[in-house]
Amino acid sequence: MGFTLKVEGSTTIELGTTSITGVKVRTDIPQDSNARSTDLGSTVVVTGKILTAVDGDPFDGTKQLGLWALVPAENSDCYRKVTVEVIAASQVVRKYTYPNAFVVDYKETYGDVEGIGTFTLILKQKKDKMAQVTVEGGYSVG
């Protein structure tokens, strides 16, 4: 099972199956409601590896994720278009599109026993733009 992450804004960040290790998507709804609530949100958690470039390869896009997490709210560039694909057995199991995603948490961890670092990125769709979130999937990789 592999994942791709694409972030489109002032710069385009692309991370592929070699770096992303997990994706969690949840729909946030108040659990104490007696009927369907209008308070609807969506959160994506992406975890992955921070790989070191070898043999003259370009560095991976994880540094750009860190820079995106630091963009102030006053700057329109803090909202970016995010596409996450889940691929297994030549099938696109899921394709999530968040056209106005913003970062709510970004963490990088490094230790002296691993050869790589790890990152955790938590994204949300701007709550008033929830209608633009799309979930697709169940078709062959084109």
């Binding site: 997990g22 969690k24 998507v25």
Partner: peptide
């Protein structure tokens, strides 16, 4: 029934993802 929580979880160590769905009946 309406949805009060939905979560999908995928990792690179498993061949299948998992979902968790929490539903309630409209109280009235």
């Amino acid at each position: 029934a309406f949805v009060v929580d939905y979560e999908e979880d995928f990792t690179d160590e498993t061949g299948a993802g998992t979902f968790r769905l929490l539903l309630k009946q409209k109280k009235d």
